[in-house]
Amino acid sequence: MILPFTLVQLALACLVGLVCVALGLAGRKPNDLTVLSLGLVELLLLAQLVVAIVAPLAGNAPTGNPVEFWAYLIAAVVIPPLAIVWALVERTRWSNVVLGAAAFAVAVMVWRMEQIWSVQLA
């Protein structure tokens, strides 16, 4: 993994999480902003997927267990689409909270992935 990219991804996921939860609690239903912001989170995860495949070939291999790393990455990639489907099916304010929760879950998982990749015995 590439730390600056991970940090950008982490900041974005936290921001998206805050905005979606705030809008949901404020009574807004899911709209283009909240649904597409989860799409952006997903896009960066797919970029991370490419990084995780290419980086070891360039000499930047995970220091931790690769199986554990990939379990987190695959699970993280699946979360935003599920949340988006949820928001499209159930068009209530609470779906925005679900979108936000999904973004926070991705943020935590990305952080764990960075630890497994770069911190010895993480």
Partner: peptide, 13 residues
């Protein structure tokens, strides 16, 4: 039920 659905979603994660 809406709040309940959020609880279910977060519990599932």
């Amino acid at each position: 039920s809406g709040v309940g659905r959020v609880l279910v979603a977060v519990y599932a994660i």
